[in-house]
């Protein structure tokens, strides 16, 4: 049971202190592309979580058998398999959503977040820690996606998940749901996170 505290620690670390999007700048492609609405963003987060947890567990199980030069190949094989599974399941049970997300589901394969967690954590730690790490990171990723999607959807359409949030006289900022809105929202949020950090550092000193 000596591993238990580290597992919890890995779990908590992933959510905010080592947030994959705001702190490590990983998986930006998906972050920008699917956050024009809350529903696609959440679906994407769930898919990434599924792939990340499965890949981390599998890699962690076979970590003692792997030679370093083969590891990237095995990582890619594992990730690609689970992404295909996620893609098929989505196409079978949420057809409309899989059409909306389009190529961004298969692009999870090259999402740096997953390969980075496999390399940094799963290939060195035992299964429990690897799973906890994956869960924490996926929750962090999901929170980041949700925060960006919420801002873009509310400002861009005045609605959130189909409910009107802003008064109807609000002039919809269409640009927010278009590609430029993604860049600007993420840029400003990143600046904001850095600013909060900065202030904290100052008060601590």
């Amino acid at each position: 049971m000596a591993d238990q505290p580290t597992a919890t620690e890995r779990f908590v670390q992933g959510i905010l202190p080592e947030n994959p999007v705001y702190r490590q700048l990983l998986g930006l492609c998906a972050t920008l592309a699917v956050t024009n609405g809350m529903k696609p963003a959440l679906t994407m987060a769930v898919c990434v979580a599924f792939v990340l947890v499965c890949a981390n567990v599998v890699i962690s199980l076979i970590r003692n058998l792997l030679k370093p030069h083969l590891r990237i190949v095995v990582f890619t094989l594992t990730i690609a398999t689970f992404v295909t599974v996620a893609d098929r399941v989505l196409a079978a049970y949420m057809f409309q959503m899989s059409k909306t997300l389009g190529p961004y589901i298969p692009l999870i394969i090259v999402n740096c977040l997953i390969i980075c967690r496999c390399e940094v954590c799963a290939s060195k730690q035992n299964v429990v820690i690897a799973a906890a790490d994956a869960l924490g990171q996926s929750i962090g990723f999901g929170l980041a996606l949700a925060s960006i999607a919420a801002i873009r959807e509310i400002l861009g359409t005045g609605m959130l998940m189909g409910f009107r949030v802003l008064p109807s006289f609000w002039p919809d900022w269409v640009i927010m749901v278009l590609p430029p809105g993604a860049f600007i929202t993420l840029g400003l949020l990143l600046g904001l996170v850095n600013y909060i950090d900065f202030k904290r550092e100052q008060t601590r000193n």
């Binding site: 076979i62 058998l65 792997l66 030679k67 083969l70 190949v73 095995v74 094989l77 594992t78």
Partner: peptide, 10 residues
């Protein structure tokens, strides 16, 4: 073992 592992996984 490495070769078999990759084959087995595949």
């Amino acid at each position: 073992v490495q070769a078999w592992l990759v084959l087995l996984l595949a």
